[in-house]
Nucleic acid binder design. Structure first.
Lengths: 157, 157
DNA sequence: GTTCATGCAAATCCTTTGCAGTTCA
DNA sequence: TGAACTGCAAAGGATTTGCATGAAC
């Protein structure tokens, strides 16, 4: 989805640096790397995935640091966490642009996660919040079902 | 929400008993009690909540049994699990009636969870699934924001 | 030089599993 | 009676915390 260009990613990493600066927090190699990985990923990496990706680049970062940095990224509003029921959290860049927000289609058989956007849906949820006297901040929409590959597989049985 | 009548609850417990019977699984005191609690609860109890409720009724049930029974309830389709980001799961009776499915409004400040129903939304999600070649099975819609009480509190600061 | 971050290991929290004893059909 | 359950305690997996050391500003 929201195929992020190199430029967009660099912009996000930059925003994170500004966030750190604004909060008088040091910029470190680890923070930069973790932000880069999350912003560059098309998948929805878990903390362990991020650590593994770092390790593959010969960059060892402690588990605690990964979690602490993800906390910062979330606090900055640049990243959000999801739970697709795997028993651990997955992270992704917060969709920013107009109509950039998206939901997730999760295959209950193979676990594939596909993103989708739907403007009508996105416009609807703040209105629903309003109707219930809630101040809308953000939302998660997850649809569980079978992806086309797994459906085919099913039909063959 | 979906204010369940005594009758409806009894019916659900009954369906669970039938599920057990159909699968040649024994009906036990623990299974009955846990089902009753989940079906009777208006809140979205966690495993620990359920165990606590049992304990308050002078009925001790082991943690493993609570989890194992919840697994059965989910397998039966009568109960579903949610993760509102508290670090543990919450359970609720699966909405069954027409238009009975609902989303959740979660207050990010006080944690209150309010349910809402919206037919248009419910009709929309299977269509979206279709458009992406997914076979829709179920969905979760969660809106995070501020409830009216917490918003008031905020305005006073 | 402070202040804050890092990494490790220990701790914590939720959930699952193994096993001896017990209940259900 | 046999199959399945229950409870306890131990194990597991993800995430958090404490603390000594090290990097950032």
């Amino acid at each position: 989805m929201a195929r992020s260009s190199l430029r967009e990613r660099a912009d996000l990493v930059d925003r994170f640096r500004h966030y750190l600066q604004d909060h008088r927090l040091p910029r470190t190699r680890q923070r930069d790397r973790i932000a880069e990985i999350v912003f560059a990923s098309e998948a929805h990496p878990s903390a362990a995935d991020i650590q593994r990706t770092l390790a593959e680049g010969d960059d060892h970062v402690g588990t605690a640091t990964v979690y602490r940095t993800l906390e910062l990224l979330i606090a900055s509003g640049l990243v959000r966490a999801h739970d697709f029921g795997d028993g651990f959290k997955r992270y992704e860049a917060t969709p920013m642009q107009q109509g950039g927000d998206h939901g997730h289609l999760i295959c209950v058989r193979c676990g594939t996660v596909v993103e989708f956007t739907n403007d009508r849906l996105e416009r609807m949820l703040p209105i629903i919040s309003d109707e219930h006297a809630f101040v809308h901040q953000r939302h998660h929409v997850e649809i569980y079902g079978l992806c086309s590959a797994c459906r085919k597989h099913d039909l063959e049985l």
